[in-house]
Nucleic acid binder design. Structure first.
Lengths: 336, 336
DNA sequence: TTGTACGCGTTATCAG
DNA sequence: CTGATAACGCGTACAA
């Protein structure tokens, strides 16, 4: 019996008790005080207070076509990335008076699709999407249905929406410059399988700019099944044995697996190899003497997504869609 | 111009095109197929498909008093605790066809209050609350206004709502039994200031059962400003110098600060002191040789909250409110 | 088996 | 300045 609550007081009750029409109450609620006497204004304020009246958002949205609700879909809520993004979004939404409806796609395109549809059904004003990347075609349809979408941190092929992400390339340049300065002669890139735009992108940048700084081939190592990590690691050690080398990971999870594997193999950094990577998670300065990392501007990305959305909502979506890059930060620590 | 989207197709459009009344469409949508001919049924299905019609959730909720939206308020979304809870909630809600509206109170009672009000305005069917603890009085009002609330992981004084949390006491018994077995003779409890129910509770249990296992006073050390961590640590080392001792932290953040401080002071575990604590975060088996921890059933708590809520929604709230405890898990590692 | 008419709580368009 | 009255999109007695 989900509807068994105390009956809510409505605008009609307020109108009756205040001795005015509900139109006037509505005007009051929407701040159009110029259309009523100071007397009515005060009376209404009192009655609202007395009755503890609160406007029903559903009815309001139904009529006004604005829900002040922002949909947010993250690809993996358990990733340390998500909370920061969400906080950025949440903090910024609050300033604009928006609430957020959150869903977790679990990196499954089907769920992503369903949630987008659901959110539209609920009349969200816009959706901030950290996409799985598996819904290109569907997203195109959504795009010309007029639903406002801003992509967070992950991109899609077609440029359909405004996108906010980190400037990975700039960060990698900065890192390589630093490593070179420290005397490193070769770097191996460790990444999980290239199943999303971020991974693909970083790996590509690595290959692209590697020879601006180092000799020899840009070598990429894939972390697939955990069981194989040790042998991949050993492969790396063999490949780079002749030069002062460094491991560079594509994200925090990869870093974690490397640390684990090194411990299993009895390897230490920076003694046996340098170690650095994307993602600066809180524990990374506690392991060994601390790990050199590239910190992503995740919180800022969240805020920026909301700002873009507000712009699109209250002005107009930019054509072509805008691509916003936020700077990363290099944290040099003991591991390199 | 937030309403500038393509005009939506409504139930009326479908009715017109299918040549029936909107009542029949409504019946179709709600699965009451017994009230229509197989012919109509098929025709409607086709038209819906053709028009890409989707029912408007707002209108539906407004009328039916059920929104299938669950409100969730976490006290700190950036805490590693929150994502797990949220995933538990999210996964379980999905099974019941519920969406979730999430808010982050930032441990500020005022925000918590505002968000609860907001959610009620939006007609959520219930609220899962990881409370700041600063709204006792307000929550009582909410309670008898009929809003369904389930408390997640944190309790309040008055027993107003069903509550789901970890069985901290049982876990501590288990830990102490283990430590005693390892030959430890004294334990110091490190905690952040007792500003929420979880911290208060654990600290109290510590004091309560300490002498069931160890001699001497149950000593509690407070981690306040980070600057003072080192001296608190040294105080502990002095207090327990004569016996084989162990540090026991009240949560993951405390553990992190201890690890940091020990490194600053050149202390090592388990050589200089044992170390264990609540919260099993992914990096904790990477630091040193791994830290002994009590893992909380956070994900399960999330699921359980939803289950309780569904029960309250579809049957009736239990009186008196039910208190649900979920078991923790002890992970023994190298640090003790 | 199907449809008519009204209501959910607001906002918007008029005319006074 | 104020107030009927008609939407918004859907559900549901009640009637047919």
């Amino acid at each position: 019996m989900p509807g068994a609550k105390r009956k809510k007081v409505t605008i009609v009750d307020v109108a009756a008790k205040a001795g005015v029409s509900k139109t006037t109450i509505s005007r009051y609620l929407n701040g159009k005080f110029e259309y009523m006497s100071e007397e009515s204004r005060q009376k209404i304020a009192d009655v609202i207070e007395e009755l503890g009246y609160r406007p029903n958002s559903l009815a309001r949205s139904l009529k006004s076509k604005q829900s002040f609700v922002m949909g947010v879909i993250v690809s993996d809520i358990t990733s340390p990335f998500s909370p920061l993004l969400l906080k950025g979004i949440s903090d910024c939404c609050e300033r604009f008076g928006y609430r957020i409806l959150i869903a977790n796609s679990d990196d499954e395109p089907r769920k992503e699709r369903d949630y987008i549809l659901n959110m539209i059904d609920q009349s969200v004003d816009g959706i901030i999407l950290n996409t799985t990347g598996g819904n290109e075609e569907f997203l195109r349809e959504v795009a010309d249905s007029g639903t406002r979408i801003v992509l967070a941190d992950r991109t899609i092929e077609r440029e359909l929406f405004d996108t906010v992400h980190s400037s990975d390339k700039e960060a990698m340049h900065q890192l390589f410059r630093y490593l070179k300065g420290e005397g490193y002669e070769s770097v191996g890139y460790f990444t999980q399988p290239l199943t999303n735009s971020t991974r693909i992108n970083r790996c590509q940048i690595f290959r692209e700019i590697y020879n601006d700084y180092f000799e020899g081939p840009a070598q990429v190592y894939f972390l697939e099944k955990k069981l194989r990590d040790a042998s991949v690691m050993q492969e790396f050690m063999r490949d780079h044995a002749t030069r002062k080398h460094c491991i560079f990971t594509g994200n925090g999870v990869a870093t974690m697996r490397i640390v684990q594997t090194m411990r299993d193999l009895g390897l230490e950094f920076p003694r046996d190899t340098g170690l650095c990577g994307y993602d600066d998670w809180s524990w990374m300065n506690l392991v060994g003497g601390g790990i050199t990392t590239i910190a992503l501007p995740t919180y800022e990305e969240g805020r920026e997504c909301v700002k873009r959305m507000m712009h699109n909502l209250h002005y107009a979506p930019s054509t072509p869609p805008k691509n916003i890059e936020l700077p990363c930060t290099l944290h040099v620590r003991h591991s390199t």
